[in-house]
């Protein structure tokens, strides 16, 4: 029991490592927020483009979607950071991580937005078009307005799942929570900073998890 205390919940080690890990938290939050904004916007934009049924574009969109959902995020990050420089394209660790996570979230959210768009009753299209609304107006004011509401619960879940992958940034030494924690662990020869990291992840994501459950419940009651 003493060992558990000494190695996982060592107050002195926590005190020393806290400032570093908190700095890491800021970086993690930064990556997470930017990933959510860029990934969801890109996913929505691609779903909208897909709705216009332009065959050539759709081939690319579907291919993008499938490929980025199939490859593990860590592999994509390693390719972006370690392989792209050999063809003359290099990004900073921060940008590489952001790019990777945004593209993965875009691929998954594209699929979710698309499912929402196709789930809207065809009668909605017909009603809107019959009043003279254009395809684009119908998509925006009638179809997306409903599709986005429908997909909020699965979208929230997926967003949480992908935002957690910010931890892979430690592989390319972005100074985020995990990276800071494991450096402190090495420096202080004690794994307590990792416990601290776990606690910070819980503080950061638990509210989101609870929020998504709330959304899901409100949604299932609504229909």
């Amino acid at each position: 029991m003493d060992n558990v205390y000494r190695y996982f919940f060592n107050v002195e080690v926590m005190r020393q490592s806290l400032p570093f890990v908190l700095n890491g938290l800021l970086v993690t939050i930064g990556i997470a927020l930017l990933t959510i904004v860029i990934g969801l916007s890109l996913g929505l934009a691609l779903a909208v483009i897909r709705a216009f049924q332009i065959r050539v574009l759709n081939v690319f969109i579907v291919a993008f979607c499938d490929v980025f959902r199939a490859i593990p995020a860590l592999v994509i990050l390693m390719l972006v950071y370690f392989a792209l420089p050999s063809v003359g394209i290099s990004f900073s660790p921060f940008v590489s991580t952001l790019l990777t996570l945004s593209l993965v979230l875009a691929a998954f959210s594209l699929e979710i937005f698309w499912a929402g768009i196709t789930a809207v009753n065809p009668g909605q299209w017909e009603a809107a078009r019959s009043t003279g609304l254009s395809f684009a107006q119908t998509l925006r004011y009638v179809v997306l307005a409903q599709a986005v509401r429908m997909v909020i619960p699965p979208l929230t879940n997926r967003t949480i799942a992908i935002t957690k992958y910010t931890a892979i940034a430690s592989v390319v030494s972005v100074p985020e929570i995990l990276n800071q924690a494991s450096m402190q662990q090495a420096q202080l020869a004690n794994p307590t900073p990792l416990t601290l990291a776990a606690i910070l992840y819980i503080l950061m994501f638990l509210p989101m998890v609870v929020f998504s459950r709330y959304l899901e419940r409100r949604h299932s009651r609504g229909r």
């Binding site: 009753n121 009668g123 909605q124 017909e126 009603a127 809107a128 019959s130 009043t131 009638v142 307005a145 409903q146």
Partner: peptide, 10 residues
């Protein structure tokens, strides 16, 4: 104008 069997209200 068109009125639908299933109403198709938004």
């Amino acid at each position: 104008g068109m009125v639908f069997q299933q109403f198709n209200l938004y």
